[in-house]
Write a protein that binds this DNA or RNA. Structure first.
Lengths: 151, 151
DNA sequence: TCCAAGTGGTTCTAAATCAGAACCACTTGA
DNA sequence: TCAAGTGGTTCTGATTTAGAACCACTTGGA
């Protein structure tokens, strides 16, 4: 996986997104970044992946503007990885994975981590997709309008 | 990637989700399934991936209850792949990838596919995450409450 | 009824990617 | 000053992927 790929010919936003973050380690790195993790060694210890793969993934994410490298906040010489605005834009993707996992991959009383409001400690609501007039949307309510490819 | 893995020790719903769908091809298969695609050959032609990888991914998705195999609706002998309820539960994940891609990976006037309401053809609203009292939530408003691992 | 073309795979091989160990350069703090 | 730690890079063997070849079955027109 090259850090910054040559221009893609994909016209689908899903496909373009997956060219950057379409692998398990990248999504787990992002999960951990949302969780406040910053240092290379923290990611490495928590995820248990090889250093060469981690270094490669971080490079892709930095090159694509999802993470940026900043000086250590404690004044140390070690740099840290931080989510950019673009990176924070992936919040709903990570929450979507979490809520799907919660709904379908855990038994009712099985212990699992949970996303809660920082201030109150209360569970949050489910992700919602609505029309611009406020109507709740399901897969059957929407359709993808494709680009007409020239012949 | 085994179709049905041995029991996971992951307590994080994101990690469990990614054990099943944490690769680019699986997510693209799901995108196409939401788009109404059903047949092996359709997926294969549209995605351009090798048949052995496609067969493997479909098997993982079927074994994990995300897709199921149904008789061809036109009475032919060929079977088709269809999203289950569990599979449709991934709708917000796919929409999240799409909306992120739209926001960050396309130039303002660059042509791309779009998700619209089936009935009206109008663009849909953005995914929203709210507290149970209706307050809009950002990454800074939430925190992951971890499982206390025994020592 | 026959059969060429198509479908949905499986198997095999070469290429690419990954896991993990070893190594390197720099930083830290006692 | 130096042992331990950090953040990588490089290398090697293992695993996965891409794609070609092949197989069994289905389809539909001649």
């Amino acid at each position: 996986m090259k850090p910054q790929m040559k221009p893609t010919k994909e016209t689908c936003p899903v496909a373009r997104s997956l060219e950057i973050i379409g692998d398990r380690w990248s999504l787990l790195i992002l999960r951990n970044a949302f969780d406040g993790m910053r240092r290379f060694g923290e990611f490495q210890r928590d995820l248990g992946l090889s250093k060469s793969v981690l270094a490669g993934r971080l490079q892709v994410l930095v090159s694509n503007g999802v993470l940026h490298v900043v000086p250590g906040e404690d004044g140390s010489a070690y740099q840290q990885y931080e989510l950019t605005k673009k990176g924070r834009g992936l919040f709903h993707v990570i929450v979507g994975l979490r809520q799907w996992g919660e709904a379908f991959l855990f038994a009712p009383r099985e212990e699992r981590s949970a996303l809660v409001e920082r201030a109150s400690g209360k569970p949050i609501g489910p992700l919602a997709l609505r029309s611009r007039t406020g109507k709740s949307l399901t897969p059957d309510d929407v359709v993808v309008r494709k680009i007409q490819t020239s012949r």
